[in-house]
Amino acid sequence: MDEVVLFNPGDSIGNFHDYNEAIQTAQIYRDRHLDSGHVLVVKSQKGEPSFDIFLAEQKLNDTNVKASKKYTVSKEIN
């Protein structure tokens, strides 16, 4: 089962249409920012395929947050 998470789209480190490019960028970011924690590559649930990169600790828990958007976790980079 896919994990659905909420993020504020404005907190995205990057947005990509190519999954492999998103993974590569997330790995580079993680290598350069070891103290940042887990990096997630997530896919938007609506519209054409789009992948964003977020830090795991930026995940929102409150479903009533107006600025949030639902994403499906594609890959977690530790």
Rank of each mutant, 00 (worst) to 15 (best):
38 H>D: 08
4 V>A: 08
19 Y>R: 13
25 T>F: 12
29 Y>N: 11
64 N>Q: 03
43 K>R: 15
54 F>P: 04
17 H>G: 15
9 P>Y: 03
2 D>K: 14
78 N>M: 00
13 I>R: 03
64 N>A: 06
77 I>A: 00
63 T>H: 08
66 K>N: 15
71 Y>F: 15
5 V>K: 05
12 S>G: 14
31 D>G: 06
42 V>S: 14
59 K>G: 09
65 V>N: 14
51 F>I: 11
55 L>D: 09
39 V>E: 00
12 S>H: 04
59 K>Q: 14
17 H>R: 13
49 P>M: 08
55 L>V: 12
15 N>L: 12
62 D>C: 05
39 V>R: 05
59 K>H: 08
16 F>T: 03
39 V>H: 02
22 A>S: 11
58 Q>W: 12
50 S>A: 14
38 H>P: 04
48 E>S: 12
38 H>Y: 04
54 F>W: 01
32 R>E: 11
5 V>E: 04
78 N>E: 02
23 I>Y: 10
10 G>E: 12
37 G>M: 02
3 E>K: 11
44 S>I: 05
44 S>Y: 03
29 Y>H: 10
30 R>C: 09
63 T>M: 12
65 V>K: 14
71 Y>H: 07
73 V>C: 02
40 L>W: 11
3 E>P: 02
74 S>N: 11
74 S>E: 15
74 S>Q: 15
67 A>F: 07
78 N>S: 01
57 E>Y: 13
74 S>M: 15
30 R>P: 07
66 K>Y: 13
33 H>C: 03
74 S>C: 15
48 E>W: 11
3 E>I: 05
51 F>G: 10
75 K>D: 13
56 A>R: 07
7 F>A: 04
20 N>E: 09
12 S>W: 01
7 F>E: 02
13 I>W: 06
3 E>M: 14
53 I>K: 02
27 Q>Y: 01
7 F>I: 04
45 Q>E: 14
10 G>P: 04
32 R>Y: 08
21 E>V: 12
20 N>F: 09
7 F>G: 04
25 T>N: 10
47 G>R: 01
59 K>D: 08
64 N>R: 06
75 K>E: 13
37 G>Q: 07
36 S>E: 06
53 I>E: 08
66 K>A: 15
32 R>C: 05
19 Y>D: 05
37 G>N: 03
76 E>D: 06
62 D>E: 03
57 E>S: 12
16 F>N: 03
31 D>A: 13
69 K>W: 10
55 L>S: 04
69 K>T: 12
22 A>I: 01
78 N>T: 03
38 H>G: 00
73 V>M: 10
49 P>I: 04
64 N>M: 06
1 M>K: 13
59 K>R: 12
4 V>N: 03
45 Q>P: 03
56 A>N: 06
